[in-house]
């Protein structure tokens, strides 16, 4: 008797969940039939990042220090007006190949200063940056909130390629078919700019890298200063800021892996040896 009761309970619970799911399924399907799945402007026009080949790509990637220095220069001369790099310290620039004196100078000359509170006067003043300081906060009055760039290449899917695509995307044509279908979506609202690599299609950042920046940045290592090159370099630099220890991580990884493979082969030998003669 009790077993019959128990048996029916499990069937009833099972039927309950299955039944409610079928009702929900009916709702989803009829909704789909009534409304279909109309394509949105974002679906028609948003594009995934273009490919970007950086020396730091892939499991064994390495940084190209000359490129990182160029990218830092782009950040310094252009992006730093609006974007902070709050998680990075000046002293870490040693990782780009700068020496102590150079870092001291970069920190001292940095246009945004460190705020200090004067206890006697009760007012805020400022002082020069030192290598021990992190890059200072940047205040931005215009439309939009520029995000801190320290981790940006980790904070977006396919981050480095995304930053690169965003930089060069302002001048690229949108998908012709999508544009014909959603002409309204191409018109930017006041204060925003169209960019097909940005998820919402319009963002508050005006094209940061244009021909106008070529003179401000001006590479000194013989690399041609083009918009595309600057975009690549600043992306490479932002890969570094997101994880300055990446190259070290790759190097250790190879050593640890070689050790483990060797140890595991020995372990396999030990296992075979112990089990020799024991059929299993």
């Amino acid at each position: 008797m009790t077993s019959l009761l128990m048996r029916s309970i499990k069937f009833l619970v099972g039927l309950g969940f299955v039944g409610v799911l079928l009702i929900a399924l009916w709702g989803t399907i009829s909704g789909l039939i009534r409304e279909g799945t109309p394509q949105t402007a974002e679906q028609a026009l948003h594009e995934h990042p273009k490919e970007l080949h950086l020396p730091s790509n892939g499991p064994f990637g390495k940084f190209d220090l000359a490129q990182l220095q160029r990218g830092f220069k782009v950040y310094e001369k252009v992006c730093a007006q609006c974007h902070s790099l709050n998680l990075v310290s000046f002293r870490e620039l040693a990782g780009l190949g700068y020496n102590e004196a150079e870092i001291k100078k970069i920190a001292k000359d940095w246009p945004v200063k460190q705020p200090v509170f004067d206890n006697k006067a009760g007012t805020w003043g400022e002082r020069d940056n030192t290598p021990a300081d992190r890059f200072p906060k940047v205040y931005y009055a215009a439309n939009g909130t520029p995000p801190d760039l320290s981790l940006i290449t980790k904070a977006r899917h396919d981050g480095a390629a995304y930053v690169y695509s965003l930089m060069v995307g302002y001048t690229e044509k949108p998908d012709a078919e999508g544009a014909k279908k959603f002409p309204e979506a191409l018109k930017s609202p006041e204060g925003l700019h169209f960019n097909k690599y940005f998820a919402n299609l319009h963002l508050a950042m005006p094209a940061p890298l244009t021909d106008a920046q070529i003179d401000t940045v001006k590479y000194t290592d013989g690399t041609p200063t083009t918009v595309d090159q600057m975009a690549q370099d600043v992306s490479a630099f932002l890969v570094w800021t997101a994880e300055p220890t990446m190259q070290q991580r790759h190097r250790f990884g190879v050593a640890v892996l070689i050790f483990l493979i060797f140890a595991t082969i020995l372990g396999y030998g030990a296992y075979r040896n112990v089990w020799r003669g024991m059929k299993h």
Partner: peptide, 21 residues
């Protein structure tokens, strides 16, 4: 002995994730 070998394989996968991905 068999578990020791298994731990080796486990650590190889683990290492690949931690250091490369």
């Amino acid at each position: 002995a068999k578990d020791g070998f298994g731990v080796g394989i486990f650590l190889i996968f683990f290492t690949a994730l931690v250091f490369f991905y």
